[in-house]
Write a protein that binds this DNA or RNA. Structure first.
Lengths: 219, 219
DNA sequence: ATTTAACCTTACAGTTTTGTAACAAAAAAG
DNA sequence: CTTTTTTGTTACAAAACTGTAAGGTTAAAT
């Protein structure tokens, strides 16, 4: 979706994008533009900073209150203050007119790729040789795959995302159970033990190390 | 981590970043620089395109084969071809020298924020009033929380990430099982039914609609 | 209006997951 | 060196998850 009052630029952009396989939407006017954007919910928004009656940065700021739609800011002035503001208001990228069509296409591609990683929730976390698929709850190494149980997943997720740091038993307890009061403290130990066994199955021994009195660390 | 042969720039950058709370690493030399980067595994890499004995873009290209470390390319020439290449090789951003310190800091902040979204696996997907925590496999609405089973999670994830689109039964089968041949077709129906019952528990009735002969759609 | 194909529900049994207890091992403290 | 604390292992029972069959319901097709 392109939101730009300069019709010449808009239609040129539209053609460029359509020629490259994108579906393009241009709003008829800029009344209630925020509602229109939210309703249409485009995959990407190309937003001009200088709109009549609307402040592009303010629009972005308001959009970001409820939406994560990827936004590339477009502006005619090569103005670093604008750039700074756009980024801090949550623009995903920024491009100045006149733009190089190839660069614009690449930037659009890059932004869409990044956002689709977030959207599709394509959550494969890589740890050493392991590919941890947080959707399926599986860990793959080459052609061997092991399935983690829910508890094992929670522990491994927590350790992987806090790598190189000692993670306390309390942290893990809190990550595992809402109310840790009535859970046997040893239960965590058992679950750690089970996770270690599974990691061993894919050839990772001693990566989940104990730091006695402190917690655990994933090496 | 800063990889730049211009010592003046490097130390200036280092100071700027350290003054803003970042921990900075400068490699001693550029021998086996790829291995060094992979070993250190920094949160962010500031990479100069023009290194002695090393081609920055080639380095980026090789890095991307095994790593998702966020990279901001830095260059002295304001060269659009370089920019295009960097982006298509997987740079997360691009900045030209001489840089505006504030802009650089903002860009660094933006890149780190984006990547930490991926890293921390901050996977709470919002659907209407529901907050779907893909880590815990739970759905919350206000103060009520329901726990999804693995199958229910897979189905709900798939539907949520393909909202407003009809999802075929085959798609769901493929998402659920590696080999769908030996799975009773009715089993999917049962799992859909179970998911519907759980959604009902948080007040969402009829959101998972059947499109007979076509599939399902999450309204 | 009747038939047919697609989808839904319930109940049940096999399997997996999970928490606990009992005992063992290892590191820290005395 | 001995005691204490912390962590690890195994076995077991309760609970949860999952696939299938049997029979019911719905909507499209004839």
């Amino acid at each position: 979706m392109i939101v730009d009052d300069d019709e010449a630029i808009s239609s040129e952009l539209k053609e460029l994008l359509q020629n490259n396989g994108y579906e393009v939407i241009l709003p008829q006017d800029f009344n209630n533009i925020l509602e229109k954007i939210l309703k249409i919910s485009p995959d990407l928004l190309l937003l001009d900073i200088n709109l009549p009656f609307v402040n592009g940065e303010l629009l972005l700021q308001n959009l970001r209150k409820t939406s994560n739609i990827p936004v590339i800011m477009v502006t005619s002035k090569n103005n670093e203050t604008d750039e700074a503001l756009s980024i801090s208001y949550g623009a995903d990228d920024y491009i100045t007119k006149p733009y190089n069509p190839n660069i614009l296409l690449l930037r659009i591609g890059a932004v869409l790729k990044r956002s689709s990683i977030n959207y599709n929730n394509n959550t494969t976390i890589t740890y050493k040789e392991l590919k941890f698929d947080t959707q399926k709850g599986s860990i793959k190494r080459d052609n061997t795959e092991i399935i983690l149980t829910k508890n094992e997943m929670i522990i491994f997720s927590y350790l992987v995302t806090h790598q190189k740091r000692i993670v306390t038993r309390d942290e893990l307890m809190t990550a595992l159970w809402d109310n840790t009061e009535y859970v046997n403290d040893n239960t965590l130990t058992v679950n750690i033990s089970r996770l270690r066994n599974k990691l061993k199955e894919v050839g990772y021994i001693d990566v989940l190390a104990t730091r006695k009195g402190q917690g655990y660390i994933l090496l």
